[in-house]
Nucleic acid binder design. Structure first.
Length: 799
DNA sequence: AGCACGCCGACT
DNA sequence: GTCGGCGTGCTC
């Protein structure tokens, strides 16, 4: 008898190991590791991943059989199955969360319970449960305790039937199609029996002659001039047979022209050569490819990918979250055509599913995508590239909190292939490793065609604000007028990290706050609401101060909407485009804005971070950064690095073609080294300065770090439990470990939960993993007192 | 997670 | 004396 080892879809410590299930006879040899199955667990039905097939159970109680298969073929291959185990361990998360993360969103199953009333009377009797409907989804959170008990009671009485829907959301699209049934020699005979003016039928026979035996989507045939009535006749006469054919969604909006490899300069050639040798020799090095903006990193990637394909292997290229614009994908596709699949958050579930299938089936050999694409089911990977490796979107913010770089290195080791980390401003971690010889260091010091770097000037907003209250300094305003006159384009960047507009009463100073969180509400003019960005609470914008009834209640802070208004007022003839979360929410709107600006149908593009990355507009000759230092104000050890990277990156956006660009940086900290060194684009000095700061502060890359966050509905409870954890840590770690906290988080209360954190900095702690695992096990009991623990290994910030 | 079981306070 | 609160433990 075969036994399936199943990781069930319940993310808890106690269910983090496989459960044994019998494989019924009729499924013998059909259940394979990596498939999902439906199983009974307790008294409900849930899904799980088969991770192994054994002939003995580790459990000596009575085993239940597998109920049914969810997949006919594995959705997680052998490599990814191993990776999931490693990742769960590394990120202190559950195996099931890791497995689910590896699947494209649309394929994830949901354990949905559905209640069906078998007696009409109960529908009317319990409106809280049924809302007047005969069938409802069972949602425990939205029901009060009495209703939950009632549901169980009605279920026992047989007045309610329970169904479990373990649904997959994305499915292949099946469309109406027709299969050609005629042999070529039958065609002319049939043609003779057709009326001369029956154009549709003639057209159909024509197509059937050229493609005997093929199956055509109905839409293709009608597009080719075959009418639906002709198809009906054809079906009656036995020419074609009605059937269904899979329609593969195509997320690529436009066809692209084919391009050929560009000529490389000496540095690029050297980089390509070294990477290619590794690919051929199946060596598992990590390269750091450092090259200033415009130095031609992408061409290095493309030619290395080409080499990987030539050796019969596949390639994976990762890009930051908001960069994956048609510009980049277009370049990859123009070289590799339909072998390219893309995995990106802007795709619909269905599109992502189809792209994933193309990869899983081996049709796609090159995958371009964001963070989660690191789990693309590619076989036989020959090269992994991480572009803009310093980008913070490579670290997942919630469980499993993985760092894409680490996952990529794991997969590269498994596949015996190199990893290329590319950046103009590498993360200090990566650069330090390159200096130590852990990574191999490749540089592209020159800009292609020797374009001059843009001229960068810094405006001190302290003196500027003393003269006039305006978001735009005189210098920036003058530069904008100048470019508008010359019909050149302008990008205005609002560094809005934690900086958005709120409401304040000018008479009493009242600021509307979220009732559930310790944070002021943000003004959203489009919806006319005050929103909480943490818990989603919304309320209308008051016209009088609720506290002192004054009418002088106004906006403060600069959001991109306010900036847009001011720019339009100051430059009424300019055509302005705004790009931020509000204007890009709709699918395709991101691309639409970029296309419009690229076609010079607007003069000014303004927006947040998302306009800083990877875009290439040759007509842009001025980049203005409105508030360069808003990130610097955060109590975060990485804020200088972020600021430097951002400013360097946006500066690269100006003047890439034949025109020399200008960059104007407005700041309240004109003397800060991150800003001064960004002005001269001096990465070397920034690296040296920042490394000294990190060394003195005992920060990464000199120290490893772990962040432990605890939350509960009571502040006292949270604090005291966290102090208990502190004692436990002190008892189990060495004297060299630096433990900071517990301290309340910057926003202590979110959704009526109180958050405290502990930071651990260390160089060598052999007991750490064991100690933290123990804390998680213990927290299972403490969670009953309401405390939840989250562990973030190598957090991006200490906030 | 979600359900059952079991042990202590306010009630028909 | 019971009903029901939630703290604890188990699910192959």
């Amino acid at each position: 008898m075969q036994i399936a080892q199943v990781i069930v879809d319940i993310p808890t410590r106690q269910t983090n190991n496989p459960y044994s299930y019998l494989i019924p006879d009729y499924l013998t040899d059909q259940v394979v590791p990596g498939m999902r199955v439906a199983v009974s667990f307790g008294n409900r039905k849930i899904t799980g991943f088969v991770v192994a097939i054994t002939d003995k159970a580790a459990f000596d109680g009575k085993l239940k059989p597998i109920d049914s298969l969810i997949d006919l073929a594995p959705v997680i291959n052998k490599e990814l199955l191993q990776l999931a185990t490693w990742m769960a361990d590394k990120t202190y998360s559950f195996k099931i969360s890791c497995l689910q993360t590896m699947l494209p969103g649309g394929m994830r199953t949901k354990n949905q319970k559905r209640l069906i009333a078998t007696e009409d009377s109960v529908v009317a009797a319990y409106p809280k449960i049924f809302h007047g409907q005969h069938e409802v989804d069972y949602n425990r959170q939205s029901l009060d305790n009495q209703s939950v008990t009632k549901v169980l009671e009605l279920e026992r009485q047989g007045k309610i039937r329970v169904e479990y829907n373990l649904t997959k959301h994305a499915r292949p699209i099946m469309m109406k199609a027709y299969q050609a049934m005629l042999k070529p020699d039958q065609i002319s005979g049939e043609l003779a029996g057709v009326r001369k003016n029956a154009n549709g039928q003639i057209r159909l026979l024509d197509i059937l002659r050229q493609h005997p035996g093929e199956t055509f989507l109905q839409s293709k045939l009608t597009a080719a001039g075959v009418t639906t009535s002709a198809l009906k006749t054809g079906e009656q006469k036995g020419w074609v047979k009605a059937t269904l054919k899979r329609h593969v969604r195509n997320p690529f909006l436009r066809p692209v022209a084919h391009t050929t490899p560009l000529h490389l300069n000496a540095d690029q050639q050297k980089a390509v050569d070294q990477i290619n040798i590794d690919v051929s020799d199946r060596k598992n090095d990590v390269f750091l490819l450092e090259g200033v903006t415009g130095s031609g990193k992408t061409e290095v990637y493309l030619q290395s990918i080409a080499h990987a394909l030539e050796t019969g292997r596949t390639a994976l290229m990762l890009v930051p979250e908001i960069t994956l614009t048609p510009q980049i994908v277009g370049r990859i596709r123009s070289r590799f055509g339909d072998q390219v699949a893309m995995l990106h958050s802007a795709l619909s579930n269905g599109e992502r599913y189809d792209e994933w299938q193309r990869i899983n089936s081996g049709q796609a050999k090159v995958v371009v995508g964001v963070r989660s694409a690191v789990f693309a089911p590619l076989d036989n990977i020959g090269l992994i590239i991480i572009d803009e490796e310093h980008d913070s979107s490579y670290k997942q913010a919630d469980n499993p909190r993985y760092q894409t770089r680490d996952v990529a290195k794991w997969r590269a080791a498994y596949n015996h292939c190199p990893v290329v980390l590319g950046s103009a401003t590498p993360s200090l971690e990566s650069r330090a490793r390159a200096m130590k010889g852990v990574y191999r260091f490749l540089t592209l010091p020159e800009r292609i065609n020797h374009h001059a770097l843009p001229h960068v000037s810094i405006v001190d907003m302290k003196t500027e604000m003393a003269q006039h209250q305006s978001i735009l300094s005189n210098q920036l305003a003058n530069a904008i007028s100048d470019r508008l006159e010359k019909h050149e384009q302008i990008i205005l960047l609002l560094n809005r990290r934690g900086y958005s507009s709120f409401l304040m009463c000018r008479d009493c100073g009242y600021v509307p706050k979220c009732p559930n969180c310790d944070i002021s509400l943000t003004v959203h003019k489009d919806t006319h609401t005050l929103d909480c960005h943490y818990c989603g609470h919304k309320e209308p914008i008051p016209s009088v101060c609720p506290q002192c009834h004054s009418k002088r209640i106004r906006f403060y802070g600069v959001g991109s909407q306010q900036l847009e208004e001011q720019v339009r007022n100051q430059f009424p003839t300019a055509r302005v485009l705004r790009m931020d979360v509000d204007t890009t929410r709709r699918k395709g709107s991101h691309e639409a804005i970029i296309d419009k600006f690229g076609a010079h149908k607007a003069d000014i593009l303004l927006g947040t971070q998302m306009i800083a990355k990877g875009l290439d507009f040759p007509e842009v000759t001025l980049v203005g950064v409105l508030n360069a230092d808003s990130a610097l104000q955060f109590p975060d050890f990485r804020s200088s690095e972020r600021t430097f990277q951002l400013l360097t990156q946006v500066s690269g956006r100006s003047g890439r073609a034949d025109k020399v660009g200008g960059v104007i940086i407005q700041t309240f900290n004109p003397d800060h080294y991150a800003i001064q060194l960004a002005k001269t684009q001096d990465y070397e000095r920034f690296y040296a300065t920042e490394m000294r700061v990190r060394h003195d502060g005992k920060y990464p890359p000199y120290y490893f770090t772990v962040k432990l966050t605890g939350n509960s509905p009571s502040e006292n409870q949270t604090a005291s439990e966290m102090f208990g954890i502190l004692t436990f840590l002190k008892d189990n770690l060495s004297k060299q470990a630096i433990i900071l906290g517990p301290t309340p988080k910057a926003i202590t209360r979110i959704n009526n939960q109180y958050y405290y954190q502990i930071i651990i900095k260390y160089r060598k702690e052999p007991n750490l993993k064991k100690t933290l695992d123990q804390i998680l096990v213990d927290s299972q009991k403490k969670q009953r007192h309401g405390l939840q623990i989250a562990i973030d290994n190598e957090p991006l910030d200490f906030m």
